[in-house]
Design a protein around this nucleic acid. Structure first.
Length: 212
DNA sequence: TAAGGGATTGGA
DNA sequence: CCAATCCCTTAT
């Protein structure tokens, strides 16, 4: 299976992200209908993108074929998943930010026991947890059935009038770029949070107390 | 080799 | 609001 719009030039990754709304992703016995996504461009085009400064061991999957899964690890504990977009060699990707669990709800509840149903996949790391994914999904295909994740077209197309755009969540750069897309009136869409700069650790006492 | 910081989340 | 927690990136 292949979807031409996934392979569209990286410059159109925002359109690709919008197209993904309403599609479902299935893994580990759970199916999620995507209600919120974010677009990230490739090298040199988007300071918030992991691929901004060129290929590295972490982001190399982004430079590979469209339709593959780019999984990354953040804050020492969370995994998040993207669908790679663009032509081969380009490095655009769409972050799967949130969705509604439409099948396998009981399995998702087991994976996130403390979550209410609307919060099972409300957030990129929550979504990955609900699907039972992790590092092993990195670099696998989401469109040919060979990997743990399978991307499937929506039963009924999304009404474009329901798509809302705004700034991406938690990014330190390119605040002004409205590359987060979500469906209006969906309870599974996550709450906007601005990037919070990390507090510096307190200076060592020996340094702080040394005479000036 | 060391240090800084992060496309987040859950709990005060 | 803040801590958790570790991997990757960048700079010595």
């Amino acid at each position: 299976m292949t979807y031409p719009w996934l392979d569209a030039p990286a410059a159109q990754v925002a359109d690709t992200a919008r197209t993904l709304l309403g599609w479902t992703v299935s893994a580990g016995g759970v199916t999620v209908r995507l209600t919120e996504v974010e677009a990230y461009a490739g090298t040199g085009e988007d300071p918030a993108s992991h691929a901004h400064r060129g290929p590295t061991p972490r982001n190399k999957v982004m430079f590979g074929p469209a339709g593959h899964v780019y999984v990354y690890f953040v804050f020492g504990m969370h995994w998040c998943a993207n669908i790679v977009c663009g032509r081969d060699g380009e490095a655009a990707a769409v972050l799967l930010r949130a969705g509604e669990v439409v099948d396998g709800v009981e399995t998702a509840r087991e994976r996130r026991p403390r979550a209410t149903d609307r919060e099972l996949a409300r957030g990129p790391a929550r979504l990955v947890t609900a699907l039972g994914l992790g590092r092993e999904a990195n670099g696998t295909s989401a469109i040919d059935g060979t990997g743990p994740l399978l991307l499937t077209p929506p039963a009924s197309p999304v009404d474009p009038a329901r798509i809302v755009a705004g700034p991406r969540v938690g990014v330190a750069a390119a605040h002004d770029l409205p590359w987060r897309f979500w469906l209006a009136d969906e309870p599974s869409v996550s709450v906007y949070r601005r990037h919070t700069p990390r507090r510096r650790p307190a200076p060592a006492a020996s340094v702080r107390n040394s005479p000036a």
